[in-house]
């Protein structure tokens, strides 16, 4: 994966993360520290506890490789001088999302929320927003797995109140 060209022999410290289903992931320290939840685990115990395994109760091992891949690449983008061309970042981001189903995207948002990683959360929520733009109410409900708990009357009333937002511009 990302460890392709570690030129010098300086050992990068690794931290072990444990996903919800018990699988272990060895992660380079700077990458792991992008996640506030992991970081907060070590605050005040800088050295002593680096060997500990950090349990991530809400993150399934299915999504860990993708999340780590995102951070390895983005932290590399940030470090590079001169900064990488916008197209390169865009291409990576697009490829990252390409084969993710809606459901996988939701699960990853939940994982990013739990891990408290701003960059990934921004990226994924924007992706979710893009997927529901210009879509019908029914589509959006299905997308998020929302159960409509309005009575038909209630729903009709809200629609009527904000009728303009559901139709095109009024005819005047």
């Amino acid at each position: 994966m990302a460890s392709s060209s570690s030129s010098s022999s300086t050992q990068v410290k690794k931290i072990t993360l444990k996903a919800a289903d018990g699988k272990h992931f060895e992660v380079e320290e700077p990458v792991a520290m992008e996640m506030e939840t992991v970081k907060s685990f070590f605050v005040g115990n800088e050295d002593a506890m680096k060997d500990m395994v950090v349990p991530l109760l809400n993150v399934s091992s299915e999504h860990m490789p993708a999340i780590l891949d995102f951070y390895r690449n983005h932290s590399e983008f940030r470090k590079r001088t001169p900064p990488p061309p916008a197209e390169e970042v865009k291409a990576f981001n697009e490829a990252f999302l390409e084969n993710k189903s809606d459901e996988q995207l939701m699960e990853m948002i939940m994982a990013a929320n739990f891990l408290n990683t701003k960059e990934l959360l921004n990226f994924l929520t924007e992706a979710a927003a893009n997927r529901i733009k210009n879509k019908s109410v029914e589509y959006v409900r299905a997308f998020f797995g929302i159960e409509n708990d309005f009575t038909p009357e209630e729903e009709a009333r809200i629609r009527a109140e904000n009728e303009w937002a559901f139709d095109g511009l009024d005819e005047d």
Partner: peptide, 19 residues
């Protein structure tokens, strides 16, 4: 967080999804 990336009109549309 998702709403941040929607237009104001699209945010209004979400009012009808569920309670």
């Amino acid at each position: 967080h998702i709403m941040i990336y929607l237009s104001a009109k699209e945010v209004v549309q979400t009012s009808v999804l569920s309670k």
